[in-house]
Amino acid sequence: MNGILIAMTLALLIPIYEAWQDEDIWQTMLAFASIATKTSIMILVVSVLRDDWMIGLVGVLILSVGNASLMLLAHVLRRMNEL
């Protein structure tokens, strides 16, 4: 199980690097979307690993809410050049 979490962390490093080096805001947003999904799945894995119901609930909530915040931010960024 530890190896799985290490591999997931490695997969998480790719979008973090992408967010660091890219100049285009939408590519950064893509990296953010990827990171939000990956971290919440990692929280779920940890909750199953420890058999902790409470952490699992938080993981599911973050999974659904993090995406909502992304959509809000995308719409605000889209309207940046209008008005």
């Binding site: 939408w26 995406n67 909502a68 995308a74 719409h75 960024l77 889209r78 309207r79 940046m80 050049n81």
Partner: peptide
């Protein structure tokens, strides 16, 4: 959510916010 998010991001990135 991931399906909806894909649509929203594609819509937002193709209309404005380029510069």
């Amino acid at each position: 959510w991931n399906t909806v998010l894909g649509y929203v991001l594609a819509y937002c990135s193709s209309t404005g916010g380029d510069d």
